[in-house]
Design a protein around this nucleic acid. Sequence first.
RNA 1: GGAGAGGUGGCCGAGCAGGUCGAAGGCGGCGGUUUGCUAAACCGUUGUAGGGGCCAAAACCCCUACCCAGGGUUCGAAUCCCUGCCUCUCCGCCA
Length: 438
Amino acid sequence: MLDARFIRGNIDILKAMLEKRGYGFDLSEFLSLEAQRLALLKESEELRNKRNIVSEQIGKLKNQKTTTEAEMGAVGSEYVFGIDIQKQKSEMRRVSDRIKEIDEILRGIDEKTGLFLLNIPNIPHESVPAGKDEAGNVEIRKWGATKEFDFPPLNHWDLAAMLDIIDFDRASKIAGARFSLMKGMGAKLERALMNFMLDLNTSKGYKEILPPLLVNRESMTGTGQLPKFEMELFKTADPEFYLIPTAEVPVTNIHRDEILNESDLPIYYTAYTPCFRREAGSYGKDTRGLIRQHQFNKVEIVKFVKPEDSYSELEKLTNDAEDILQRLGLPYRVIALCTGDLGFSAAKTYDIEVWLPGQQKYREISSCSNFEDFQARRANIRFKREGKKGTEFVHTLNGSALAIGRTVVAILENLQQKDGSVVIPEALREYMGVEVIR
RNA sequence: GGAGAGGUGGCCGAGCAGGUCGAAGGCGGCGGUUUGCUAAACCGUUGUAGGGGCCAAAACCCCUACCCAGGGUUCGAAUCCCUGCCUCUCCGCCA
C-alpha cells in the first residue's frame, strides 16, 4: 500500500511508475474523494469540538446544581447561571445527529479510498530494468557449468517413476491433479532438503519459525495477497481461513501492528512450511511433474530491516539463497525482474533459476524481493529510532531458500546417471544416509 | 460441544453507581542530581494517529480520535445496552 499523502503530492511520478508496470489507473476519482474526505473530516472535528465544550459546561453546572438550586430557590429549574440547559441539549442533539451523518459518509469514502489504495501495486525501485514482460528481465550472473550428458537426460517424472519415489497417479486418485505422493527415498529427500536448508539458514542467524498454515484475512491483506488475488488462494468455509501460499504470509505478519525498537532490527526468520496455491489460470502449464503443484514444500527467509539497509539486505538474502544451490552443486542464474514482470507488492525482485537438463531450461527455484515499506504500511509494522520522536515503517524482504519440490527436480535431473540412478550431493548425504538413489 | 471469567497506554495494573479520564499507581525508557565506575536513591519526563497554527523542515502550540472491534442510549461513555472477534479457566471429546 502506498501513502495517501504521497499519492496526493506525487501524481505524475506515480502515473509514470504505474505505466512502467503496465497498470493504468484513474487517479482523479481518488483525488476528489480525498478532497471530500478532508473537508468532511474538518467539519466533523469542529462539531465535535463544539459538543465537547458544551457537554463539559453542562457537566460542571450539574455538579454545582444542588447547592445552586438551593441558593436560588429554584429547585427543578434547568436554568443555571443564566444558561438554558434544555436549549443547549436540544442544540447538541442536532450537532450529534450531524456528526453521525458525516461519519456515515466518511465511512463510505474511506471504504472506497481504502480499496483503491490496496489495489495499487508497489512502485519499482529505480534500479529495476524497464520492460513489458518476462522478456525484459535481465540476467545478473550465472553460477556452475551446465553438465553435458553422454546420454539423453530424462525428465524428473520419468526418473521418479523408474526409481519409484514419486507417485503422481495415486496422488491424483487421493486428491486430484497437481498433487504428488512422495515415497521412500523421495519422501526422505524432501525431508533431508528441509533439514539441510533450515540448518544452513539458522547457522547464518535466521531464527527458525514454524507458523500456522491457515491464516485470517487480515494477514493475507497485510502481505498483499488480498484483496486482489483471492482467486489464487485456497480457503476454508466455516470458519473462514486462508491456506498460506507461502510462509511469507504468516511470518511477515508476526509483527503486524507492532512498534519495534531500532535495536531489534534487523530481524531474520526462516520457516519451513507447505504452500498451497490454486494455480488458477495456469491450465495446461507444467501439467506433468513436480514443477507446479497445489501443495509444495518450501523453506522461506524473511527479514525486517531499517529502510536504509533494505537494498544491501536484498543482496545478502539473495546470496544466502544462492549458497544453498552452490552447496548442492546445482547450476543456476540470477535474473532481475523487469518492471512489467514484478510482483504486485515488490519494489525489486531477483529470481534464481536452476538449470534443468530434462527441460534444457532454467526454471525459477527462488524469488527474492524487497517490498520496502509496502507490506509494512499494510500490516502496520513500525519501528522507533533511538532518541527520535515518532515512528517509521520498517522494510520487509523475503525469498525462498529454497522451494523444496523444485530442488528435488533439479537434483534428480542434474545428478542422474545413465542407469537412471541419482547421485546425492555431498552436502546432503549426512541427511540422506545414502550416496545414491537407485 | 457445555459452564464461567476477561480484553485498559511498551509492560503490569486501578478506574467501571456515566461528566474536568488520554486515563491513578508501579515497572520499563529518556533527561538530571549524587558517584572514581556501576548499582541504589531522589527529582523531572515519557503513547499513537489525523488535521491545523507556519503550503521549507525541526521544535513548540492548538484541535480531533483512540481504554478489543462495530453499533445503540445520552448534551456527554473506558464506564450503561446489543452484536462480533479474541484470550483464559473448568467439564466433555480428541492427536
